[in-house]
């Protein structure tokens, strides 16, 4: 790891004041620190968000679950309000990485990083969550911009994420046997507005929704509605672990399993 100047501000305003183009925000560090150790990133300064209390916490506000950006995966997985309102979100958080990663990694860090195989982007997109920054509120569709890219601008920090509570939801992932990341992950939801299906791990441009599957589930939210469904392989990843056709097949299989699991 190359040397850097370290800052540990106590509030969001102080953190923003420390940001410049050579600075990186440190949330849970479970991606950034390994990246820096491999010298794939070499920020001149690190702004550690770890002591900003206002960024952590989980609450239910009416029909919405609000999760602070620095809330650890383990805390989302164990939270009673999340379990009661969106059990699929608790289960997703409890399946990220391993227990030690879940004790450090944060929802805000995961979303800002927008790894194309990360779990949280699928939940945010399928649940139609709102990402609240220090400057504005972003709908999930407007937030994710391809591989490791988001709508976040200079001096912008994720503060919290608001998840509308769905009628039903479930997440299923097929893990890469080596990395344990999602080879494909599918998050399905049923809401008053219809069904939503978001896919992580498979898209060459990151997380995306599958309109054809949403239409089929909108007519009938049952695994049988996807019996003959197919997803085109165009735009999906091909790599040493799986080709695009295999991932396309997995999307439908996992969508069916998720709908069945949602009950």
């Amino acid at each position: 790891m190359y040397a850097f100047t370290y800052h540990q501000p106590n509030d969001v305003a102080a953190a923003v004041a420390l940001l410049d183009e050579d600075a990186k925000l440190l949330a849970g560090g479970q991606t950034l620190l390994p990246t820096m150790k491999q010298r794939l990133a070499s920020p001149a300064s690190i702004v550690d968000l770890g002591k900003i209390g206002e960024l952590s916490g989980i609450s239910r506000e009416g029909e919405t679950i609000v999760i602070g950006a620095m809330t650890r995966h383990a805390d989302v997985a164990a939270n009673a309000a999340v379990h009661q309102a969106i059990p699929a979100l608790a289960a997703l958080a409890g399946g990220i990485g391993d227990p030690h990663v879940r004790n450090r990694g944060t929802i805000g860090g995961s979303l800002a990083n927008n790894d194309p195989a990360a779990d949280y982007p699928a939940a945010v997109l399928a649940l139609g969550a709102t990402i609240v920054t220090n400057k504005r509120e972003l709908a999930a569709e407007a937030f994710f911009h391809g591989l490791f890219e988001t709508a976040l601008g200079e001096g912008e920090i994720i503060v919290k994420v608001r998840f509308p509570i769905p009628q039903k939801a479930a997440y299923q992932k097929f893990r890469n046997p080596a990395s344990r990341f999602a080879l494909v992950g599918v998050f399905v939801t049923q809401t008053k507005g219809g069904a939503r299906v978001a896919v992580t791990g498979a898209g060459a441009s990151g997380v995306f929704r599958v309109n054809a599957l949403e239409a089929a589930l909108g007519a009938s939210f049952a695994a049988a509605a996807l019996k003959d469904a197919t997803v085109p392989a165009e735009g999906l990843n091909t790599d040493m672990h799986a080709d695009a056709a295999y991932r396309a097949h997995l999307i439908v299989v996992l969508a069916r399993r998720a709908v069945a699991a949602a009950g």
């Binding site: 370290y6 540990q8 440190l26 560090g29 620190l33 383990a74 030690h100 990663v101 004790n103 450090r104």
Partner: peptide, 18 residues
């Protein structure tokens, strides 16, 4: 793996200054 404030973490992936 060590325990920090009662939680198990990977000590190779945390800065001491944090």
């Amino acid at each position: 793996v060590v325990h920090v404030d009662g939680r198990a973490i990977k000590s190779c992936t945390a800065l001491a200054v944090s």
